[in-house]
């Protein structure tokens, strides 16, 4: 029982990734599918941050730090990179959806199946 409580952040990560997969597989609206991708990306970011956690340790910044013990800094740096890349790809996908809506008149992924004509 105890280890289920302690592993709660990882269980949250599993829940977020499963919700994102569900959204991508079962929704027909393209914007909702992009939302699913964003949910998966947030789950991965939460996983990276919670990997770096050490109990009772401070943030890795020496300015007025409360103590000498600090959490692992590399995962935080990678999470920053991941957030900006996710934002860029989401903006690009949304602009593709805007173009699709203009040319085909629909954001339904089933109606946009054929690419010619």
């Amino acid at each position: 029982m105890n280890q289920w409580v302690i592993a709660l952040p990882f269980i949250t990560v599993a829940l977020l990734i499963s919700l994102g997969l569900y959204t991508i597989l079962f929704k027909r609206n393209l914007i909702k599918m992009i939302m699913g991708l964003a949910i998966i990306q947030n789950g991965v970011n939460l996983f990276l941050v919670s990997l770096a956690y050490r109990e009772g340790y401070a943030a890795p910044i020496w300015t007025s730090a409360p103590g000498e013990d600090m959490v692992l800094p590399t995962s935080h740096a990678l999470t920053l990179t991941s957030i900006v890349i996710g934002l860029a790809t989401t903006a690009l996908m949304l602009s593709f959806v805007i173009m699709l809506k203009k040319h085909k008149g629909s954001v339904d992924s089933f109606k946009n199946r054929r690419c010619r004509e």
Partner: peptide
Amino acid sequence: ALSLILLMMGKASDSVE
């Protein structure tokens, strides 16, 4: 970059019915 994305999306939202 982010201002440019916001600006282009704001302009493009006007061109969609």
